[in-house]
Nucleic acid binder design. Structure first.
Length: 212
DNA sequence: AACTCGGGGCA
DNA sequence: TGCCCAGAGTT
């Protein structure tokens, strides 16, 4: 992908989604961390429904630990993968209490050591909670990056991330991340991408194929 | 690299 | 009914 096309993609995304942002409701880094852990393979809308009541009941890592596992499972019941997530959240909170003075660590390395926190979640937390430039690669970012030709079809998630960090200026990483998400969620959907009305269809593998 | 967890939304 | 959803851990 040449620099001119990259620039055009970034400018077009900015034009389409000027105010793309994190849509997981939260009021501090700890709540964001919990929300992102819950959001794995689920929709942010669903997560917000759950956290609206969850965050009223649980304020601190101690609150999550001082409750039977079954109770926490019940409180997040209608999100998928809830058993894994409940267990991970309690383990994660124990680590915060024992090793981080109850605070959320601010580095990728420390964050990814937490139960249920992988590279994608860690990237979302450092960028949205601590202002660190980052590009978190989720299914949307991976899909649209491959369709637009920003990376190779068979790139791993980590390879996608590295490629994007190389192509995109660092000061635009976080914004670009959010815009790629919005682009994937609202326009370049997994099943029926809106190629007919897409300003990037001419340089997109998927667009060329579908409009042919 | 493939498999599993998983209820809910949407066509 | 089948596919997807702001993934991570295990084998």
């Amino acid at each position: 992908m040449n620099k001119k096309n990259v620039r055009r993609i970034l400018d077009t995304l900015k034009d389409m989604f000027p105010d793309a942002h994190c849509e997981l409701n939260h009021s501090n880094p700890f709540e964001l961390l919990i929300a992102v852990v819950l959001s794995a393979q689920s929709t942010d809308k669903k997560v917000n429904e759950v956290t609206e009541t969850l965050f009223r009941k649980y304020k601190t890592p101690q609150d999550y630990v001082h409750v039977p596992l079954e109770e926490l499972e019940h409180d997040i019941k209608h999100i998928g993968l809830y058993r894994n997530k409940a267990k991970n959240i309690q383990a994660l909170c124990r680590t915060l209490i024992e090793e981080h003075n109850g605070e959320v660590p601010q580095t990728l390395e420390e964050l990814t050591k937490l139960a249920g926190v992988g590279r994608k979640t860690a990237n979302v937390v450092v960028s949205n909670a601590f202002g660190v430039p980052a590009i978190a690669v989720d299914t949307h970012v991976e899909r649209v990056s491959k369709r637009l030709g920003l990376c190779k079809w068979d790139d791993s998630v980590l390879e996608v991330e590295k490629t994007l960090m190389k192509l995109v200026p660092k000061e635009e990483w976080t914004q670009t991340h959010h815009r790629l998400i919005f682009f994937g969620r609202y326009h370049c959907k997994a099943q029926r991408p809106a190629c007919e009305s897409c300003p990037l269809s001419d340089i997109c593998r998927e667009g060329k194929k579908r409009l042919k």
